[in-house]
Nucleic acid binder design. Structure first.
Lengths: 191, 191
DNA sequence: CTTATTTATCACCTATCGTTCTGAAATCAA
DNA sequence: TTGATTTCAGAACGATAGGTGATAAATAAG
């Protein structure tokens, strides 16, 4: 009963993601959201509770997706070979406007605390996924003894962030080059 | 003649840099600037022509500093050994709030065009500084033939960006680990 | 001391922010 | 058709944004 909604929630979230991702939380104004999502102000507040609530759901959508990427690392962890598989799966389109998580770091005091926590959760998961695979290769005696798993992990985290930044204004070709050299690097870690 | 200024321009720029760097252009409000720099609104407009003018001078200050970092690469370029020297010179304090250049990418339509151009200029310089050193090692036959200079360059650019991001919420120790492995990586590039 | 000049203070301007409210339009049950 | 319910469209709200103005205070030359 009652009038029908003229918007589809998932379409609204998709469009809002594009805006928040590209222009940030404060940089995305309510009028932008109203104009581009087609959602009117009344419904925005009814459906999401406000700008911060919409941002939170948008953030969850994004985190869900990048968490999906991690399945490459967690589903059948086999060590270094799995790690290179993960980096090969990276596509610039995932980082059209950089990494939404990284971008939002500077606005952590503007967004809800639980939203920021989602970013930390993902970081933790990525961390553990890398550790898991490194442990496998380490235990099998594959990795040089003079290099610690922690340092390899940090190196790979830096590379992942770096690729996200690079993807903003570099073509896929450049990212592919980086991934190729990650392979070279991982090979050099072997005994 | 006339009343003395109660502020020192370099101190104002220093404080404004901290604000813009941490909270971004739009995220830094005039009131923040007035409160933290001690500069009153009148003088801010007289001295810098407005918020965007102040931002530009602040940006120039930062770019000048990070351009200084590049001297390690350009002063006595000796190839791979110089490149590792550059990365060893990186300190988390340079990236307290990430890389100001990277942070500002998402606000390129809010700041002056010439300001954004400064960021592109630095990128170009970094690019060339890396190329120069890689060429030296390449010409001396130091580097494996199956790996191009361009791919190494992209790899190092990704690492640099990644370290900048990492430095936001990681201790120097973690960055040091990454740099140590960059050494390992560069060694693996040799014939 | 007077006067010209520069800066400081702070009230004030318009525009826009996020948010709320109002009344019309649409939908469905009775 | 009526009435209850829900959404729509957009006006209106208070707060604050960036920017400007008028006036007082400080300085230095004459």
């Amino acid at each position: 009963m009652g009038r029908n909604k003229t918007y589809k929630k998932d379409e609204v979230l998709e469009k809002a993601l594009e805006l928040f991702w590209r222009k940030g939380y404060e940089g995305t104004h309510l009028q932008d959201l109203v104009t581009h999502t087609g959602l009117n102000r009344f419904s925005l507040y009814k459906e999401f509770g406000g700008k911060d609530g919409l941002f939170h759901e948008v953030f969850e959508l994004y985190v869900g997706r990048v968490t999906g990427f991690l399945s490459v690392l967690t589903k059948e962890p086999q060590g270094l070979s799995t790690i290179i598989k993960f980096f090969k799966s990276l596509n610039v389109s995932f980082f059209l406007h950089g990494c939404f998580l990284i971008n939002s770091l500077s606005e952590k005091f503007l967004i809800q605390e639980k939203t920021y926590q989602k970013a930390l959760d993902w970081t933790k998961k990525f961390d553990q996924a890398l550790e898991m695979n490194l442990k496998i290769s380490r235990d099998s005696g594959e990795i040089r003894d003079d290099i610690t798993n922690e340092s390899i992990k940090n190196f790979l985290i830096a590379l992942d962030s770096g690729i996200a930044v690079m993807a903003i204004n570099h073509p896929q070709k450049d990212v592919d080059m980086v991934v190729t050299l990650i392979d070279v690097f991982l090979q050099s870690l072997k005994k």
